[in-house]
Amino acid sequence: MLKIEHLNAGYGDLQVLWDINLEIRSGEVVALIGSNGAGKSTLLWTLSGLLKPMSGSIIFAGQSIGGVSPDRIVSLGLTQVPQGRRLFAGLTVKENLLQGAYSRSDKADVAQDLDFVLELFPRLRERLNQPAGSLSGGEQQMCAVGRGFMARPKLLMLDEVSLGLAPIVVDAIYEAIGKVRARGMTVLIVEQDVQIALEQADRGYVLDVGSLIMSGAATDMLANPKIRAAYLGI
């Protein structure tokens, strides 16, 4: 579904990512882990078209999307839930969710998906007509994840959705992610919290100072002593 080869990317002259090779197959849940500043968000920003790659290729659903405009990438079925939620604070919860479906023209299905999201996150239904900026942190993250679902992407990339949230909220969000996975959505989980990410994923990659240094099955990685020492502090 997504194949990245020899990707170099960064901001202006500042190269952040070095020779990234990564593959995500249809139906998989893949975890990308790495500490703060490793380049995870830079990679996602590049995949979404907000940054142009310096070199290398990104193939998504059979098409080259390196340097393609963000709106076209969303139309092709690649969406991300950005770090820090980035909700439209002055828009209501409902407007935020509907804006998530902006690239879609299938009105009836959008209405159905809105219902689906509100079943996943009943808290959002209670707050439907409130400005998103007035929600609690956990509710805002639910709204951000819901907005991502509303695009009905083939591949959904989630950037640090657990950051700063209570464990019970994190569980609720990952339970919802499990349900969309069951509907056939492929998921890329980007997390600093290695335990959470690898528990959810089939496979994982480790990004360190802009390079991928390890990859493998999630269960193997969780058992790997190096990872346990470096990221889990065990």
Partner: peptide
């Protein structure tokens, strides 16, 4: 309207609006 919502979204957070597919 859909256009009005996209305009307001863009005014509030340009990057986030792009991530929803707004050109």
């Amino acid at each position: 309207t859909r256009l009005g919502r996209a305009i307001r979204s863009t005014g509030m957070d340009k990057d986030a609006a792009q991530l929803t597919g707004a050109r």
